[in-house]
Amino acid sequence: MDHAAAATLPDAHPDHLDTSTGVDSRKLAFWTFIGSECLLFGTLIATYMVYKGASRVPPYPHDTVVNGQAYEGILDIPLTSLSTFILLMSSVAMVLALSAVQRGDRAWGRNWLIITAALGATFLGFQVYEFNHFYHAGLKLSTNLFGATFFTLTGFHGAHVTAGVIYLLTLALLVHRGRIGPEKSITVEIAGLYWHFVDVIWIVIFPLVYLIR
């Protein structure tokens, strides 16, 4: 806003929305929330990095030799690569869902939302399998620092995915009932922001935990 505009216009809002910045308040709140989430996950990741390689007892994440004895890494890279791919695809489904809702396509808006949630649930299924497998292979929260940092970091992410799946299914229901049309597409857009953010966090976690030794 330049000074002249502010002085002459009775309404100095720069954009179509009735807010000072011209952006939707809910969306702004959500981006701020995402900013806060960055520090939540940032702290978990920082802790993981600090304690990387500090475990005193096996199981270790990757193949390791300690005092001449070889230990097999517990992480299953091919399996997690697959679940990573699935979460990535759910993000693609999410943008398609938003685009369908925005052009008023109720059926496909609903369908893509359900597909997104289903892909998310599949990712969670992989995680449940992985956690269960680790548990039986002797890795618990209380086993070593790898267990503590790994389960809290990925578990915290998994909790976000779970919340996201419920969130998306609720929206799918609302779209199906016609309560969210193009005029309210911002609701879906915000859910999309959440979902993509959860994906972005996994984009950071996957290489840090699984790929970088």
Binding site: L40, T43, L44, Y51, R56, T149
Partner: peptide
Amino acid sequence: AIFTIAVTQLLFDRFFGTMFFDPSKGGD
């Protein structure tokens, strides 16, 4: 947000047997 996680880690140490801040098990 940072504090929330730090406190959560302490909560896990106290409730679920992790060792984030327990030097006897490698924590710092």
